[in-house]
Design a protein around this nucleic acid. Structure first.
Lengths: 214, 214
DNA sequence: CAAGCTCTAGGACAACTGTCCTAGAACCTG
DNA sequence: CAGGTTCTAGGACAGTTGTCCTAGAGCTTG
């Protein structure tokens, strides 16, 4: 809803739309649309419309066409989430860090008014990506997320292989919960998935947290 | 590759394609294509081409158009998987049942030559599904899968709420692993996810299986 | 003010989409 | 074989898509 400078994307009803940050607005708009409607379900015209840009801006700012928009949007969204995960994992004990990551996921991917979705997953599932350009970007993001979570656990004494498995499972479960929540039309499936992950974390760390019912 | 009667879909190079099972062939072809290219990435013409059918067959057999093809394909694929999960959960101890489910997932969703994919998830992520018809079918399938897995655990003494969380987490993790494997272009992410789930299962059941390295 | 560059604005185009339509082949029933 | 039903075959159509293009607005520098 707000781009990286913090200013609103569309300042009111019908903004003049003639500033120099068109490219950045398009990246944000594309990430939002991919989240909502998927990569194949989003047209270049949808992107420029939401970004209040002109169609000519597409090939001026993104000579690589739709693919490059996908690359940039997935990279932007993936980096943004990675930074927040890394921040959450840097200065907290594993239990709190994972809890923060799960809250982050609920806030970014599941909740937020509209239906659940993830721009990185959307780009990874693109049908036209024959050369794997888009998938590579998505893979990079997933990798960063996993690495951050795993690192948080190993620094607390969990064995590296076990931490890697937990991190992979957590990222996969969250991405899968997006699909389940889409299908269910609500947030409930995520709640179960999140609590299941926390069950596992409790066992991993050998602690028992109060709000995990038997 | 083979339809529900067991006979090959296309008996050789260019079959005469004039039998009466056109509808069933189209459902199978649609499920395959949705798995490979997603719902929005698959055209009606792709479906009839793979099913060796004529374009007129679309609205003859599916008066509801593409949406109905999606409904039938997701229902068919979802039921098929549900039956196999239920069978695996009916006659085995939880450890073996979950292991069988995970092997099933690897075989159906992740492996199989081409890229990872799931027709049910593809239908759930459709962009045009404004009235929720497609999502309802997908939700139904996910629900059956979860219920079967959870039931297997509760019948072995695991508390119902905990079993439900584990089942939700397992289904979500597998669906998410499909996305991770798409992005990675290989099966490796799934291996970690699967072993993470088995770690959790070991703890849930209080056993220690030999091939789960620390 | 003049020249030059960056960027917006939207027309044009071929390819493709879902949908509907009519013709005729194939089959079943009498 | 006649009559009717079921299904295949593909043409037609309006709408959309990604892409490329030219025209000009707006800013920056001399």
């Amino acid at each position: 809803m707000a781009d990286r400078t913090g200013q609103p994307v569309g300042s009111g009803g019908a903004p003049p739309a003639g500033r120099r940050d068109t490219r950045a607005r398009m990246v944000v708009a594309a990430a939002e649309l991919f989240r909502e409607r998927g990569y194949d379900g989003t047209g270049c015209r949808d992107v420029v419309a939401r970004a209040h840009a002109a169609r000519g801006a597409i090939y001026h700012h993104f000579p690589g066409g739709k693919t490059q928009i996908g690359v940039d949007a997935a990279r932007w969204a993936g980096d943004r989430v990675a930074q927040r995960i890394e921040a959450a994992c840097a200065d907290a004990a594993p239990v709190d860090a994972v809890r923060a990551v799960l809250d982050l996921a609920e806030q970014i991917l599941i909740g937020g008014g509209g239906p659940a979705g993830c721009p990185v997953a959307a780009v990874a599932l693109s049908a036209e990506d024959t050369d794997g350009t888009l998938r590579a970007v998505a893979n990079n993001a997933f990798d960063r997320w996993r690495t951050a979570i795993a690192g948080c656990l190993t620094s607390d004494g969990v064995a590296a292989a076990r931490a890697a498995r937990f991190a992979a499972m957590t990222v996969a479960a969250v991405e899968g919960a997006v699909v389940l929540c889409r299908a269910a039309g609500g947030i409930e499936p995520y709640r179960d998935v999140r609590d299941g992950i926390l069950d596992h974390l409790d066992h991993l760390l050998g602690t028992v947290t109060p709000n995990a019912a038997p």
